[in-house]
Simulated assay, not measured.
Amino acid sequence: MGHDVNGLHHVGHLVRDMDQAMERYRRLGFTVAAPACPVMPATPEGPAEPFGVANAHVQFPRGFVELVAVVDHTGRMPGNARPLPLRVPQEQVPRLRAAIRATAATLTSFLRRFQGVHIMIADTSDIDRVAARLTAGDVGHGGVHDIQRPVETATGTRMEPARYLEISDLHLPPGRVPEGRIGFAENTPLNPSQEPPHADHPNGATALAGCVLCVADTALPEVERRYESYFGPARHGRATRFDRADVTVVAASALTRLLPGEHPAALPAFVGYTVAVRDLAATEELLRGNGVPTVRTGPDELFVPARAALGAAIIFRQDD
């Protein structure tokens, strides 16, 4: 069980202000791609209008971090995002607009809880197998969806097919579990010439290497059971580790042993994520030079507290 999971696909960091988020991430030493926002006419003859959410990617050779901001009632594109026209048959427009607005409403509800990481998507090379496994294990999910995702290539942005599913809790709206949105994604393999360029991050980041979920102590056994049904067997220690998905689950009483000084904004919550870096000492020097506070947790790891990173602790780990 869980052999169809290949680590993290991405985590989603919800922010209230895309401009502020991009500036903060650049101070943290990340190269942030230009944000994009879907646009579509509200009527057949009307102008294209922004709606839903805008996002910007921090891309690695394996996985990415997605910065997400909801388009406000004025229709202004956050972060001066570039428009991303959605072209679908006219009869499908109302359904698509409704689906994107529902997603935006869900993300807005997450932001009411706290600004930070609310999305965790695992990578798979066989999403149909994942769907069958979850169904057989009586895990609720919304089925496999086929979408088009924007991919930055050497010749510009192109839309490529991708497939995803989201896990659902019977007591919550579709696509949601208590900690946010969890799911799986399968990307169509690209030719080498179509591969997105992987940014050279000033902080030396090379990969998205994990995320951390904090839960109430009393909820830990149930969450461990849920996550085993999603991602396969766990490894137990001072925190529970699901290696195939690169997810660590920690009880609230033990969080400060893992991330000293950190306190969850709510429970359950994704309290941070990990990136691997080429040279941890060089990363630490850059962060300090940019006035970013850091906390050392060992010879090969440090983190930036959530208060300095828009609600999510960012852990930097020496790439092995």
Results as ranks from 00 to 15, higher is better:
237 G>T: 07
235 R>H: 13
238 R>W: 05
231 F>K: 05
236 H>G: 01
263 H>N: 06
235 R>Y: 09
234 A>S: 15
214 C>S: 11
223 V>C: 04
237 G>V: 06
258 L>V: 14
249 V>T: 10
227 Y>A: 12
216 A>W: 00
236 H>P: 00
227 Y>I: 12
258 L>H: 05
261 G>R: 08
215 V>T: 10
215 V>W: 00
232 G>Y: 13
262 E>N: 00
240 T>I: 15
249 V>H: 03
214 C>H: 01
254 A>F: 01
223 V>L: 03
262 E>Y: 00
219 A>H: 08
240 T>K: 03
239 A>W: 06
264 P>V: 06
239 A>I: 03
248 T>I: 13
218 T>W: 03
224 E>D: 13
221 P>H: 10
240 T>H: 06
220 L>K: 04
246 D>S: 15
253 S>Y: 00
213 L>H: 07
251 A>S: 13
257 R>D: 14
250 V>E: 06
234 A>P: 12
248 T>N: 01
258 L>Q: 09
249 V>R: 03
212 V>S: 02
234 A>D: 12
211 C>M: 07
235 R>Q: 14
217 D>M: 04
263 H>M: 02
226 R>L: 12
243 D>I: 10
248 T>E: 10
216 A>R: 04
256 T>S: 15
247 V>G: 05
238 R>D: 14
220 L>C: 07
237 G>N: 13
220 L>Q: 08
241 R>A: 11
214 C>K: 10
239 A>P: 02
226 R>F: 07
261 G>V: 07
233 P>D: 14
253 S>K: 04
222 E>S: 12
248 T>R: 11
244 R>F: 04
225 R>W: 05
260 P>N: 08
248 T>F: 02
220 L>P: 02
215 V>N: 07
247 V>Q: 10
233 P>W: 11
242 F>D: 08
218 T>E: 15
226 R>G: 02
235 R>P: 00
257 R>L: 07
218 T>Q: 13
254 A>R: 15
260 P>Q: 08
217 D>R: 03
263 H>S: 12
244 R>N: 09
250 V>C: 11
251 A>F: 02
254 A>L: 05
240 T>W: 04
224 E>W: 00
249 V>E: 04
221 P>L: 05
244 R>L: 14
215 V>Y: 01
247 V>D: 02
229 S>P: 01
212 V>E: 00
240 T>R: 07
239 A>F: 08
249 V>L: 15
263 H>F: 01
245 A>H: 08
232 G>V: 14
251 A>M: 06
213 L>G: 06
245 A>E: 08
252 A>C: 10
230 Y>T: 09
232 G>E: 10
264 P>K: 08
221 P>E: 09
244 R>A: 13
259 L>R: 05
212 V>A: 04
239 A>L: 11
242 F>Y: 15
250 V>K: 03
259 L>M: 09
253 S>V: 00
223 V>E: 12
232 G>D: 09
